[in-house]
Design a protein around this nucleic acid. Sequence first.
DNA 1: AAGAAGACCAACCGCAGCTGA
DNA 2: TTCAGCTGCGGTTGGTCTTCT
Length: 252
Amino acid sequence: MGRSPCCEKAHTNKGAWTKEEDERLIAYIKAHGEGCWRSLPKAAGLLRCGKSCRLRWINYLRPDLKRGNFTEEEDELIIKLHSVLGNKWSLIAARLPGRTDNEIKNYWNTHIRRKLMSCGIDPATHLPLQEQKMKMTISFVEGREEGDKSSSSSSGSCEEMCVWPARRRPEEVGEQKQWICPDLNLELCMSPPFQLPPPLPQVLFEEPVKRESFCFNCRLGVKNSSECNYCGGGFLGLSSGAVLDYRSLETS
DNA sequence: AAGAAGACCAACCGCAGCTGA
DNA sequence: TTCAGCTGCGGTTGGTCTTCT
């Protein structure tokens, strides 16, 4: 079985696009619109595979692309969105008009990652690097204890062992210190009846305290609004842990 | 001035998800 | 329900440019 190759490699060009190829592609798409990438190269008289044409168009030739440096506002937005969405570059790009996923991905890897690291923030988790270190230490201690329950540990009190609260409840967000005891199964006994995404680092919020409600979708705080400013989510969690769908209230 | 190292970014590759037969 | 075809996504590569020594 197996999948047929997306194109006949022997008869396709690879590498950098020439001006003539660009012009052919632009002219074809202007005349016929986007889509049907597999048949496009032949129809447009290009010796390229459909994938390559699509990529070239989306990342470079599209007329609505914004070229040039990223602004500070874009930087901030990318960081915030990445803290929520992770490496979902296409979703992040959808929030930045004129920017492509590839462009944002490259920009992240070359600029923002370094910028965050120089600020002491782990770009992968958005946690302060210091807390990351502590968390790793605790994981190690917990793992050891799990493996050898008899040696109930000398490695300090429960409080001393506790570090980053991996899953904070909404009302806990914003407090200076949150100690969670690893011996308690908070996941089971205390967490709200929904799946929370990983916590967001306080450092990324302009006002890292008191938030009345938060978006269930991306977990950013929502102020004076019935929907999330970032993802447009309508389901908001309240500090009590209750769930409220503002949209359904509005429409009913 | 020249070579090395690092930074940047366009393009490629492989995989996953969706769709229709 | 299964499977092939297609598209889109994210990770990676490699060529070019810039900066450093």
